[in-house]
Design a protein around this nucleic acid. Structure first.
Lengths: 134, 134
DNA sequence: ATTTGACCCTATACCAAGTATAGACTTTAT
DNA sequence: ATAAAGTCTATACTTGGTATAGGGTCAAAT
């Protein structure tokens, strides 16, 4: 398969696939005589794996580690579980952060009614206030 | 005030302040004879405003717009309200997305119990599955 | 008077995770 | 034979900064 084909199948762009190669997530593929990359079914499956990981917002480093661990199938998968759990923690923290942000923004939005002038805007006056922790 | 002072007061780094200047959020300040930036109380307040906006995850473009609108104090603040409401929408959407991600990751985590081998890992087997929309 | 240290200056490179472009080459279709 | 589509490499750009190199300035201590 050529790069455009696996791009179509996976929904990754051609550039993204070459980018993953540069980042070491995909091995250097064989080339045709005309220097075109040719991919095996295995590489396609690996790209699908990568896409799934990215869809779950894992970093390239995290994905690298997961791909690496697949090469030692007899070892314990505890470290895989650990990565996922840590990742869930990160996402939970981000959700908390965004909820707090949203609450603060909603409060601001409520502090300004329609038909006000810029100089009387409740939102802008809120944003002027320094609230440094300490 | 010199740049280090307003950095200390606001908690922005010196580089970040120069970065905001390059991006047009802060005007080019006066300089001393030795070419040091000197800031007024007004600029300090503007930097505090910017910091508040960034703390609410607004983009530099959004902040630019808010700063601009402050220059026409007699005009309606409808557009300011619109920016904030749109921003709240963006954050809400992100929260939704992360909640869905978290649910999917938790499901994966539950699919793998302790003491398994890599080749039997429930998480890795989940990640192999392509689920393309269409 | 000089030297040390803290601060400041510009310019440039780097980060993540791609995206976009230019300019050339290869393959496919007409 | 030629045009269109696909591919190649290399490079620049995105966001919101951070880090570094290599220099200049300023105040205090020696």
């Amino acid at each position: 398969m050529k790069i455009g084909e696996i791009a179509d199948i996976t929904g990754c762009s051609v550039q993204t696939i070459r980018f993953y190669e540069r980042k070491g997530l995909l091995a250097q593929p064989k080339r045709t005589e005309g220097n075109y990359r040719i991919y095996s079914k295995e590489t396609l499956e690996q790209l699908i794996f990568i896409k799934q990981c990215r869809a779950h917002d894992m970093s390239i480093q995290e994905i690298s580690y997961l791909l690496e661990s697949r090469e030692t199938p007899e070892q314990s998968c505890d470290s895989v579980n650990a990565i996922i759990n840590e990742h869930i923690e990160q996402i939970s923290a981000k959700i908390e952060e965004l909820n707090a942000l949203k609450a603060s923004l909603n409060k601001m939005a409520n502090s300004c009614s329609a038909n006000r002038k810029i100089k009387d805007c409740g939102i802008l006056s809120n944003l002027k206030q320094a609230n440094f922790p300490k």
